[in-house]
Every structure is written in structure tokens, then in C-alpha cells.
Design a protein around this nucleic acid. Structure first.
Lengths: 258, 258
DNA sequence: GACCGGCCTTGATAGCTGTCAAAAGTAGCA
DNA sequence: TGCTACTTTTGACAGCTATCAAGGCCGGTC
């Protein structure tokens, strides 16, 4: 759960010899994520206005924080590449991972209500985000009804997916939680046109457990059980879904009818 | 978890002899919830425009559904008086209560992403809601930046409070879950200037358990334990918080440092 | 006032997950 | 190649919550 400064230094050095200029010059207009992210449904002119806003694209290295709880909300961030985890720390000091945002998903939406971030965002692998100044975004929304509607859809979708997690946390056993987690990841990758049968998990067993309300040993045991049952194949963090339908049926049937 | 049609009939008859005309003629401008709900921060002229939108105020009796999963999203609903529960049904048929909305809270926000409700809203006691046609609301938001911002704050706040529940579901033991539930209820009542030491719970033990990921027997046991420890007093659903600070400390200290 | 059904409480037991512990696997580095 | 630190896996056992069961309480009805 803690960040290795050493790791960051190493990544930093790798950074120094690599140029990201080309990728940073990407615009929403030709971004492969425009059918998932904020630009969905906009015409060329509208896209241009949004592009003017999202001028800063930023690289975040594995282990690095993009923002921390308490930071004033200046920008929302859309994941352009890579993987993040968002965790919140309770008053009692307990950490809870609330999301694993991936390509095309917005981070920081929960900060609007208080003008300050509540969560901490850490890159799980070398990643890239598009920062969207929030005050200017809100101003633009008034001019572009379609953008406003898409923004509302993304906010609403965040609530809906949180409810999905509540369902997992509240009704499922450990085995089903892990199965549902893998399916969710696979589905989201698939929706982005990425290979979704073989997944390289960017998070540790402990992080999966924290997210699902389980201990890391239990997560490991459930991976083993799903493997022994022939539903998945595992090789460290590389996980292959062998029986997609069986896995889904397992989640559907649930433990017992309530 | 199922609705008693008989109860509804009884309530319906009670309705017939009572006039709600006076309360239904309420406007946002003089609503006691304007500092919590959508009108927060608006001037008189803006309030007027919002009032024009929110013309339909509707009574919902205990046990009655306001909307059901699958219903097309036409209006958001703000609770004006009373108490609701929102529950979702998974593909496998499991029900999960995701919220207990009370005065000043919006229902149906998660429906924007798909234009259809995902949850089911049931009144836990005779209640009243203000229905806000969503398409017209979005149009008005473009004209009223302050209303737009407040709407975004409410959406964001819904995400934030969902994260709070995830924290409860993911990190707390049964005793702490129940303690946190009572505190949350008490705090929200207090924020509305209502008595918050003695609470009449509008939901059953089973509903509390469903919300918290516990069985009803466990909820009952935890009520008994908190009572035996002198933190609360109980008399059926009437619950008094005797040691507010001790209850909060209990939640803060948590089970064990992670 | 007596009956009835739903909700709540309490007890005994079983099962699942957490805890503690140790060994094996993996990645990075000298 | 060998070392080190971290992650993952697996086992044994304890503890918490679910399950099954019985009895009490309360409101509503006749």
C-alpha cells in the first residue's frame, strides 16, 4: 500500500531518455477513446473547443500520485493510457480502494462536492492522463449541451458502477467477489477493443482484497480455487479466463436465493 | 422486502379524506430544504425559474413504489418529506439496498447514464417528493451556472457518500457497521435541524442488514450489544443515541490497524 | 378482549473468512 | 550468478457471522 520512492527514481530515469512528445500532442479529435470518454457525441467544432480546454496531457509513472486527499480540485483527469487505483482513508486510518480507473474513465468526480479531493490517485503502471480544468469545463458545458449531457452521463455512470460494487460487497461470497472482479475487468477491457481473455493484472492480491473487502490470502485462495475448477488459468498476475460463460453463471446463480 | 398491497389500500383510503393541497403548493423559494437541495445558492429570479420546472409535487405512501428498475428516466425526484429506500436487483436476483434517501436528497441520479432507472424506489413511510423533469432541468442548467454547479455538487456528493458506504462494507465488522449506520442517520437528521438523538428508524432490521451486508439476526444482536454497552437505548425501532462520542470513537478506532 | 401475522430477540451450531506462520516464486540489482 | 526484498501460495487454527430454530412482542383485526 505504500509507495516505493526507489521505484519512482528508476522510472524517472527511464523517462529522461524517452520522448513522449508525439503522444502528448494527441487531441480529443483523433483520440481512440473518444467514443467512451467525454467527447462522445460531439461534432468537429465542439471537439475543437474541448481540445482547447484539455491542453495539458501528463505522464504519471507507476507508484506516483496524481492527486491526494485534501488537494483542492483544479482539474478532473481522464485516463488516456495505463491503470490507476483510487483509495480513500477513513478518519480511523483505514484505507479502502474505491476504484481501479482505466482508459477513458474520469478521476476526481467526487471532489466537486467539496472542492477538494477525497481520494488518492496512484498510477499502478506507467500511465498518461488528460487534465481538464474543472471551472473552465463547467463554463464550456453551458455552451455545449451535448457535452453537458455526456458529462452528466459520466457522473451518473460513476454512481451506477459504485452501486455495482456495493452489490458485490454486500451480497457475494469471496469466490464470487473474485469472479465478479475478473469479469468486470475483462468486460471493461473488451469495451475498449482490447484483448480481454488474457489479463495482466496491474494490482496486487492485497489491493484486490482491499477493493473487495477480503484479505490477500483469501484472494489468493479464490484464484487457486477458480484455477482448480478450470475456470481460469493463472501465472502470477497474468490471468486467463478459460470459461467466460461458466464464470458469469457462477456470479449469476449467487450463493443462495435471498 | 415485498410490498403489501393491503397496506397500500389502507393508506389510499386514509388519503381520500385528507387534503394535501396546502403542502403541495409549496415552492422552492420558501422550502425549508432550500439550503440542502437543488436551490442552494440561487437568487430570487433563478429560484423562480426552478420553481416553474418543479411544478409537480407528489405524495407517495408507505410501501408504494415511486419508480422501478427499467422505467425510463423522466424525472429526478427530491425527497421533500419522509423516507425512501432504493434497492437494485442483480442479474442473479439478489436485492441490495443502495441508499435510504431522506429530506433534500435526490433520487434517480444513476439513471442518467442509461436513460432508465436502475434502482427501485419505495417509500418507507408516507412521503412527499418534488419531481423534476430531467430534460428540462438540463436545459435550464445551461442558463443558470449556479444551478448547474449545485447540480454537479449533488451528483458528486452522491458519489462521495457511496464511497463512504463502500468503506463501511469493506472494512468494518458487524458491530461497527451498525454503529456507523446509526451515526450516519443521526448526522443527516442533525444537518436538517431535526432531533438526532432519538431516532425512529423507518426501516426493518432486515433492511438495515441488507444495506450493511449483514443478516437481520446479526443486526439485532449488534443493537443488543450496543445497548448492553450503554451506547444506545432501544425500544423496538425507536433508538436513542446515549453516548454519541463513544459511538464515534468506536467507529474511528476500527477493528485493528490495517 | 382474544386471535393472528409480522417483526424482533436470543440461543446453538455450522461454515466461511481472518489470522498467524512458513515456504515458494519473482523481480531487480550487484 | 547469487543476493535481497517483495509477492504469492498454502496450511492450521481461531473467530466472526450465517443458519436454523424457538419464543416474545406488537399492531391490527374480528
Amino acid at each position: 500500500m505504500k509507495t516505493s520512492g526507489f521505484l519512482n527514481d528508476r522510472k524517472m530515469r527511464r523517462m529522461a531518455v524517452t520522448s513522449f512528445e508525439a503522444s502528448l500532442r494527441q487531441r480529443c479529435s483523433n483520440c481512440s477513446l473518444r467514443e467512451i470518454c467525454l467527447p462522445l457525441g460531439l461534432d468537429a467544432e465542439e471537439l475543437g473547443k474541448l481540445d482547447d480546454l484539455v491542453k495539458r496531457r501528463r505522464r504519471v509513472f507507476a507508484g506516483q500520485h496524481l492527486f491526494r486527499a485534501g488537494d483542492p480540485l483544479q482539474s478532473l483527469a481522464a485516463v488516456r493510457a495505463g491503470f490507476f487505483k483510487i483509495y480513500e482513508v477513513s478518519a480511523g486510518g483505514h484505507e479502502q480502494i474505491t476504484a481501479f480507473p482505466m482508459e477513458g474513465e474520469l478521476m476526481g468526480l467526487d471532489a466537486i462536492s467539496t472542492d477538494a479531493h477525497r481520494g488518492n490517485a496512484v498510477a499502478l503502471e506507467d500511465s498518461e492522463v488528460c487534465e481538464i480544468p474543472f471551472t473552465r469545463l463547467e463554463a464550456l458545458l453551458s455552451d455545449l449541451p451535448r457535452l453537458q449531457h455526456q458529462f452528466h452521463k459520466l457522473l451518473s455512470g460513476a454512481i451506477a458502477s459504485d452501486h455495482g460494487l456495493m452489490m458485490v460487497l454486500g451480497t457475494m461470497t469471496a469466490e464470487l467477489k473474485v469472479a465478479a472482479f475478473l469479469l468486470n475487468l475483462s468486460d471493461r477491457l473488451g469495451a475498449r477493443g482490447q484483448p480481454c481473455a488474457i489479463i495482466h493484472l496491474p494490482m496486487s492480491r492485497e489491493e484486490i482484497g482491499n477493493y473487495l473487502g477480503l484479505k490477500l490470502e483469501t484472494v489468493s485462495r479464490m484464484f487457486s480455487r477458480l484455477r482448480d475448477d478450470g475456470l481460469i488459468a493463472t501465472e502470477g498476475r497474468k490471468t486467463e479466463i478459460l470459461e467466460h460463460k461458466a464464470l458469469r453463471d457462477l456470479c449469476l446463480q449467487g450463493p443462495l436465493r435471498a
